[in-house]
């Protein structure tokens, strides 16, 4: 699926937001500058809109490794970025997911954790530098195995 404008990124985020529930894992794969955080921004915005929550500023989670966003009474978004982590054990030491019962989890740079997840939806961001075209590939595991988007 091609993403030829910010608007199409927003539309994709809106579609995905309708399908996400607590305890889901959405993995965002792609190189630096491929659009993962921009997509996350639209996604958190769409989720907060859906839950009638006052929108919060969505910034890059790289430095903090995780940023949380409110979705009302029984839900939160945990927006992770494992870019700075070097090994799988770092995730354990940091204590992530210990309290993650009521979270929708968005994970940028998920390579360190993907094998441990029984169920996830993954969006791969592909940026063709020569043609200046962005596109995404969507795949999933578990209940997301057959997930697809009708353009």
């Amino acid at each position: 699926m091609e993403l030829n404008s910010l608007d199409s990124t927003r539309k994709l985020a809106e579609i995905i937001s309708k399908n996400l529930k607590n305890n889901d894992f959405l993995l965002l794969k792609g190189t630096l500058g491929s659009g993962k955080t921009t997509f996350s921004k639209f996604l958190v915005r769409a989720l907060q809109k859906k839950n009638k929550i006052k929108p919060e500023e969505v910034l890059s989670p790289t430095f903090n490794i995780v940023q949380y966003y409110d979705l009302g009474k029984n839900s939160k978004v945990a927006h992770y970025d494992f870019y700075r982590l070097k090994q799988k054990s770092d995730i354990n030491y940091l204590g992530f997911f210990d309290t993650a019962k009521n979270f929708i989890n968005i994970i940028e740079w998920p390579e360190l954790i993907i094998d441990s997840l029984p169920e996830y939806l993954q969006i791969s961001f592909i940026y063709n530098v020569d043609k200046d075209i962005r596109s995404v590939k969507i795949n999933g595991k578990g209940k997301w195995f057959n997930f697809s988007i009708n353009e």
């Binding site: 630096l32 500058g33 955080t37 921009t38 921004k41 500023e57 910034l59 890059s60 790289t62 430095f63």
Partner: peptide, 18 residues
């Protein structure tokens, strides 16, 4: 005023990485 996406230090670090 504030950044609306990446922090400046992060931009330096990621540019270095590239």
């Amino acid at each position: 005023g504030t950044t609306i996406d990446d922090a400046l230090g992060e931009t330096f670090d990621k540019t270095a990485k590239m």
